[in-house]
Design a protein around this nucleic acid. Structure first.
Lengths: 142, 142
DNA sequence: TAGGTTTGTTTGTATATACAAATATTTAGA
DNA sequence: TCTAAATATTTGTATATACAAACAAACCTA
């Protein structure tokens, strides 16, 4: 059944949740080739771009809670894609050589994902949608 | 940090996920007075409106997988808000008297939730947004 | 400089959701 | 009629995320 056929299609909770699940499914498929979930991929991209970045900063950028960031890092550490160094109360996260090798493939996945949805929605529409979602999210900010 | 400040604010996965989390948080607060999560509330509303509705049908309307529906029903059963009857391979879900008593309060929560977000976004904007999200979700339909 | 507060991170636990497989029932085909 | 396929539901397990509390370090302030 399509979202528009549901009795609840006029409720924001329902529509955002349903859309997010569909988009996540697309994203998961796109990042499958590198064996990462979308969240892990985004975190890793950030670490590759800002080696030594701290969990707090990652949380702000990815808009995820600190505990979630810890869990994501732990998994990437298991996969030997990042390493953590702790000095005092702060932690720095660095990409491993293995992560750097993987970077081009990760970017291909990102591109593939983008092409997937912009193909379905139209390029201009996609850009507008994303802008609109961002604006809405910021308006809902506590 | 606002969604618009993130490096990934131009990616659909990131924006839909972030928005859905924010909206869910608002929704959870709104339904707190009746002690239900938004999903449980929506399922219960459907059962109240269509007594005897089957899990498959619930899954289609709520756009959730059958296993998820089972789990939601189980919890509502624990709370004595629905009962299941099984005949052959089909199951019917009925609201209890307790659920019927709760219905007005549930509707109040729904209204409160709507007022929350339409207050933040503007009434017209909200309606347009929801319509737009619904259309997008349907375009992404496999 | 000692003690309380703030900051950064992690751990224990809980929730929502889904996938895959199991189960049970009904239907259809030979 | 017996078996194979389809349908409806549930169960076992896995994932992502968050909250609350624990912990540890750094910073104030009296």
């Amino acid at each position: 059944m399509k979202t528009g056929d549901s009795k609840f299609c006029q409720c924001l909770y329902f529509t955002t949740a349903a859309l997010a699940r569909k988009v996540e499914k697309l994203a998961i498929e796109s990042w499958n080739p590198v064996g990462l979930s979308p969240s892990h991929a985004y975190l890793l991209i950030t670490v590759l771009e800002e080696p030594g970045v701290q969990p707090t900063h990652l949380g702000e950028h990815l808009q995820l809670k600190p505990s979630t960031i810890t869990r994501l890092i732990q998994k990437l550490e298991e996969k030997k894609l990042v390493v953590r160094t702790t000095e005092g109360r702060i932690t720095n996260v660095y990409p491993t050589p293995r992560a750097k090798e993987l970077q081009p493939k990760i970017m291909d996945c990102m591109k593939h994902f983008y092409e997937q949805y912009s193909g379905a929605l139209g390029k201009e529409e996609s850009v507008k949608l994303v802008q609109s979602l961002t604006k809405v999210a910021d308006k809902l900010e506590g």
